[in-house]
Amino acid sequence: MTHRVLIVDDEPNIVISLEYLLKKEGFAVHVATDGEAALAMAAELRPDLVLLDVMMPKKSGFEVCEALRANPDLPALKIIMLTAKGRDTEITKGLALGANAYVTKPFSTKDLVAQIKTLLA
């Protein structure tokens, strides 16, 4: 069974790299480039996991995370937050808002894939 992963990031080159990486690992990959699109797509596609950038236009990753956790239709959804800002307070905030993991950019592709697989196992 194929896991659906939703990538949410506004940085095109990062999106390209993640998309390529995860497709190669056999996931069904979808992309949203801002927070609002991400919520709409999550509701529609019901992904198993969301890779969520924090710094995005329209809605920040934190807000998206909160909204996703408030959606009762997505009880099993896993959320990995990605951020280029590595401050402790933000990590704490992300985890408090219900993220399953927090990954700092730049990340190791191997580690990221491993983390995704662990969460979806």
Partner: peptide, 18 residues
């Protein structure tokens, strides 16, 4: 600044690793 520096670095690392 960290954010601005890490963003291109993220792409560079990801593609290089792949």
């Amino acid at each position: 600044v960290t954010h601005e520096l890490r963003t291109p670095l993220t792409s560079i690392r990801a593609f290089s690793e792949m």
